[in-house]
């Protein structure tokens, strides 16, 4: 036993020292980490309306992103029935600042639908409102997500910003890396003339319908199918909210 005592003590001390160092560092950097995570999301939101801003989001500094976001964008949190959560409710949930940004759709999507919360951002320019929704889906390897900006009619796409966790560089990752892919979505519709929900399809071999389809990326069929599915399901979650806005039950 004597022989092992030193070994055990050595390992314990070493582990304790390293755990302490890491705990200290983690606590010290936690604030920076959280700030970075929020900023990362803010950038993505702004990317969806990038062509309406005066300069590209990637060229903006963190402080600029933060400032622009607070000046130009209003945040709301919706429940599954499309109601806007009141301030007191948000406070009781602990979302004081940046309530919509703090909604983690990955965590929310694991809850039953009635309990899920949905973020909504409203951007105003030249007297027009743009509604920005968040959608989440699965690509080939891992999660993909997007911020979809809709025009005031809640039908026309004003802009979209995709992102992904681990799609193949050069293939699936093009949804984010190739600006021309996202540009195709601008002006597309999600409802047909009769008001039926259509969403937007990413079509392999080239778009056929000028209103509801865009071209796929060759070699990334599964990622593109994932995008189609994500948009169809993700935008539909906001349908109750659209109805309430259109029937003037909600004023934003």
């Amino acid at each position: 036993m004597q022989k092992y005592r030193y070994t055990i003590i050595f390992v314990l001390i070493l582990s304790a020292v390293s755990a302490l160092v890491l705990a200290g560092m983690y606590a010290g950097l936690k604030e920076a980490h959280q700030k970075n995570e929020l900023l990362f999301k803010k950038r993505s939101v702004l990317r969806s309306i990038e062509h309406m801003l005066n300069r590209p989001v990637s060229k903006m500094s963190d402080a600029e992103v933060d400032q622009l976001f607070h000046e130009k964008i209003r945040q709301y949190v919706l429940d599954a029935e499309g109601n806007i959560l009141p301030e007191e409710k948000l406070q009781s949930l602990g979302f004081v600042e940046d309530p919509a940004i703090r909604i983690d759709r990955v965590k929310e999507s694991k809850k039953p639908l009635e309990e899920q919360l949905f973020p909504l951002y409203v951007f105003e320019k030249d007297g027009k409102k743009y509604y920005i929704l968040e959608v989440l889906g699965k690509g080939l390897w891992d999660l993909i997500w997007a911020f979809v900006a809709l025009e005031e009619d809640l039908n026309t796409v004003a802009g979209i910003a995709f992102d992904h966790a681990a799609e193949t560089p050069g293939l699936g990752a093009e949804i984010k890396d190739n600006p021309n892919f996202a540009k195709q979505f601008i002006g597309k519709k999600i409802y047909d003339q009769n008001g039926n929900y259509r969403s937007i399809t990413v079509r392999k071999g080239g778009a056929k319908d000028p209103l509801f389809e865009v071209d796929a990326i060759s070699g990334a069929t599964l990622t593109c199918d994932g995008v189609t599915e994500m948009l169809y399901r993700g935008i539909k979650y906001y349908e109750p909210f659209f109805k309430k806005v259109q029937s003037n039950q909600i004023e934003i």
Partner: peptide, 23 residues
């Protein structure tokens, strides 16, 4: 194990720093 603990600690330090520096 001792070597791995040392390496893993340093790597975690790098990961935490990178997360704070360039997310």
């Amino acid at each position: 194990i001792a070597q791995l603990i040392i390496i893993a600690t340093l790597v975690t330090v790098v990961a935490l720093a990178l997360k704070a520096w360039d997310y």
